[in-house]
Design a protein around this nucleic acid. Structure first.
Length: 513
RNA sequence: CGGGGAGUAGCGCAGCCCGGUAGCGCAUCUGCUUUGGGAGCAGAGGGUCGCAGGUUCGAAUCCUGUCUCCCCGACCA
């Protein structure tokens, strides 16, 4: 029995879905908007997304990809060109049909029947078609290739069931779109983007992921190959945290992206697309969150250190504030994880001991409380969010000289960044089962009632078409899905769990978000 | 989109069955006390009861519709 008085009312192990929702609210990240499937992202949540944007954008630009912006609306006629793509998205589309409102005579407004659009516009669910259209004009010669574009944008998919950050009708993302002269070049770009996402997730978000290729049934509509990074959440489910697609020439054919080669012949370009979305914020919560709220990895924390002066609303406050301001300035002059330290002096009135818990729930990596006696002694009281409690169930403050804290702040932040990754990585590795040799054993593995159903990595023969569909159905009956064929998986041995044929590779099976 | 549950103050809830002045806890504000770690006492402010119709002398409460959220399913780059 624990005497700890946690900052949340719901524990992960009691109700993971409810816990997730409480973290989103308690960490002040987002709230309901009143519009189905759409959320208001609040400053702390959006600040985390902005940090993700900044770090990923730098990686994208470092690869020579340029940012551009394409329209929100796509003419319906443009969208219908790539058959598989259309089939994949048609049933979840928002459509604009009118351009004016008129009074309904009862004090309300209705779309003006006189203002119906000749051709409806769809709200982009992704931008392959509209960017492909631009590429068809921008690509003429082999000298125009490769064409490497990215856009940061919102997209809309009319989801049947939504969850904050994980699946919303409108979400924010980046979508990279590239065109290449050859299959090899395009595939190399696909893999570069995949590796970029892996490094971004692991290094910047402390999120251990497994990069690999999606099986045929999980491919992006119209893609030749789909690759993903998969992360394990604290309930053992898998979350696809980023995807990279080699699109072959089918989108180039649909959009007319052709170039003249060195011999003067007309060739179809090979295209790719790749994306990461605000879903990543959900992955962060479900990977690093604990029973006291979120824990934000320092690299993406909007504020890495929060200073809380213990104000008493008396004459001593001025001196205490000056002491804290000096502390803030000396920290802000330091560099951690390659950037100036982001430090907030939270001097709003109120008891520091009470406001501390707001920052615990938000997951600020370091919380520093400073009282009059600390000031006199030249000390600070430091609370690390990644190790909150003492054995006795009290907040684990480290009282240390101010100068020591300042001198070690960068190292401490790097240590938290690394520690969160190590913790999540150890948890995942402890819950990936690689020794399952039969379908029955697979079913047993997932039938066991345990906190982490985890993942299974099993040999398979890579069936396709109807044979694959049959396997997918068998898995669906167990609420299981294929995740990906990990790049780093060992050589396949033995028989395919699903067909009995000699295995050709190893694939991850898991419950998934 | 199918089945189930829910919407009352910023948050969590009671009241509804059986119609009759809108309640509790936390939070907020004020005062006093307290002051090394999530303070105590007293007082105060804050709600067209999701929205729209209907029944009724009278609706948070009964009826109809609708919107949103949660859970299960189907769907899901």
């Amino acid at each position: 029995m624990s005497a700890i008085r946690h900052a949340l009312s719901i524990k992960r192990q009691d109700d993971f879905a409810q816990w997730y929702q409480e973290v989103v609210a308690a960490a002040d990240m987002a709230e309901e908007s009143g519009v189905r499937g759409c959320m208001v992202i609040k400053p702390w949540g959006y600040g985390i997304w902005e940090r993700m944007q900044r770090l990923l954008d730098a990686r994208i630009k470092a690869a020579g990809v340029q940012n551009a912006y394409f329209p929100l609306f796509i003419p319906l006629g443009n969208f219908v060109r790539e058959a598989a793509h259309v089939e994949g998205f048609a049933k979840e589309m928002a459509v604009v049909t009118h351009h004016r409102l008129i009074s309904d005579g009862k004090g309300g407004l209705i779309p003006d029947p006189e203002a119906k659009l000749e051709e409806p516009l769809i709200v982009r669910p992704t931008s392959e078609t509209i960017i492909g259209d631009a590429m068809s004009r921008w690509v003429q010669s082999w000298r125009d290739l490769p064409l490497l574009l990215n856009q940061w944008a919102n997209v809309v998919r009319w989801e049947m069931r939504t969850r904050m950050f994980l699946r919303t009708s409108e979400f924010l993302w980046q979508e990279g779109h590239t065109a290449h002269a050859t299959r090899d070049d395009a595939r190399a770009e696909t893999m570069r983007a995949l590796e970029m996402y892996r490094a971004f997730a692991e290094d910047d978000l402390s999120l251990p992921v497994i990069a690999g290729e999606k099986p045929e049934n999980e491919r992006f509509p119209g893609a030749a190959e789909t690759w993903s990074i998969e992360a394990m959440m604290q309930d053992g489910k898998a979350l696809q945290a980023g995807t990279s697609h080699y699109l072959g020439t089918s989108f180039a054919e649909a959009a007319g992206i052709r170039y003249q080669d060195r011999e003067g012949g007309q060739q179809l370009a090979h295209t790719t697309s790749w994306g990461v979305s605000t879903r990543m914020v959900g992955a962060l919560i479900m990977t690093h969150g604990d029973d006291d709220g979120l824990r934000v990895p320092p690299a993406v924390a909007p504020q890495q250190i929060v200073i809380l002066p213990m104000l008493r609303e008396d004459d001593g406050d001025a001196a205490l504030l000056a002491y804290c301001e000096a502390l803030r300035a000396s920290l802000a002059g330091q560099t951690a994880l390659g950037e100036p330290i982001r430090v907030l002096l939270d001097s709003r009135p109120g008891k520091a001991a009470a406001r501390r818990w707001d920052w615990v729930r938000r997951g600020a990596p370091l919380i520093v409380e400073v009282g009059p006696r600390d000031m006199t002694e030249g000390k600070v009281a430091v609370l690390r969010r990644d190790r909150l409690w003492t054995e006795a169930g009290k907040p684990d403050f480290a009282f240390m000289p101010r100068e020591s804290f300042v001198a070690e702040a960068a190292i401490t932040l790097a240590s938290i960044q690394q520690g969160l990754h190590a913790e999540a990585h150890a948890r995942r590795e402890a819950n990936v089962e690689r020794g399952i040799a039969s379908f029955e054993a697979l079913a047993d593995f997932f039938a066991a009632d345990k906190r982490y159903p985890g993942w299974a990595e099993v040999p398979w023969a890579r069936p396709t078409g109807a044979a694959l569909d049959a396997v997918v159905e068998r898995l669906k009956a167990l609420k299981l899905t294929f995740r990906n064929v990990p790049l780093g998986a060992g050589p396949a041995e033995g028989a395919c769990l699903f067909t009995g044929e000699p295995a050709v590779e190893r694939i991850l099976v898991a419950r998934a978000y």
